[in-house]
């Protein structure tokens, strides 16, 4: 995977020797200068091109600008930044289903001014069989509803509610915060 065994000075050998993580900071207002590459996914073979568009909204339903929206799927990744209107457009291909999982996009959203880590969710498609998805089965119907895109004439629509009554369900994993206590 991404790491090899520690082989240099400072490498820890036991969990009691865990290194203290570098603090996370915000992206700030100028991150599009450095994280400027915006990959999209183009269809290959039988892959179906799709667009997913929507807005990033705050608790008052106002657009959130300067926000990074990224997706990951078995076929690759995409990145987009919202402007003043809070809108994003993901150009990608329909993800394939995998054992136990309905087709979905892993979606990361990180607003430039307030967040020090991305909020992570999964986006599901209304025209797929989502009933047997292992992740969705762990969620309440209300939580599931916030992760389902809408079909439109031109693709799919998915608003990301960072906060408020319709807040999107955001996901974590064991150990996410463990070494940042």
């Amino acid at each position: 995977m991404t790491t090899t065994a520690g082989d240099r000075d400072g490498a820890a050998t036991a969990s009691s020797d865990r290194l203290v993580p570098t603090p996370r900071t915000i992206l700030g207002p100028y991150f599009t200068l450095g994280m400027h590459v915006r990959p999209t996914l183009q269809p290959a073979g039988h892959q179906v091109p799709i667009t997913v568009s929507g807005r990033v909204l705050n608790a008052l339903g106002e657009p959130v600008m300067m926000t990074m929206v990224e997706t990951s799927q078995p076929e690759g990744w995409t990145r987009y930044f919202t402007g003043l209107d809070g809108a994003y457009v993901i150009t990608t291909v329909k993800p394939q289903a995998t054992p136990g999982r309905a087709p979905h996009l892993l979606l990361l959203v990180m607003s430039g001014n307030f967040m020090i880590r991305p909020a992570v969710t999964c986006l599901y498609f209304p025209d797929e069989d989502n009933d047997t998805d292992e992740l969705l089965q762990q969620l309440s119907p209300e939580q599931r509803a916030t992760m389902l895109a809408r079909r439109t004439d031109i693709g799919y629509e998915f608003d990301i509610h960072l906060a408020g009554d319709s807040e999107t369900t955001f996901l974590g994993w064991p150990g996410l915060l463990d070494d940042e206590e």
């Binding site: 608790a59 001014n113 967040m115 762990q138 906060a163 807040e167 369900t169 955001f170 996901l171």
Partner: peptide
């Protein structure tokens, strides 16, 4: 930050699912 950042608890799921 109240209006800009998530307030609901994270839903913790097994790493393999994300």
């Amino acid at each position: 930050t109240e209006i800009w950042t998530p307030r609901k608890p994270l839903v913790i799921v097994p790493s393999r699912l994300i």
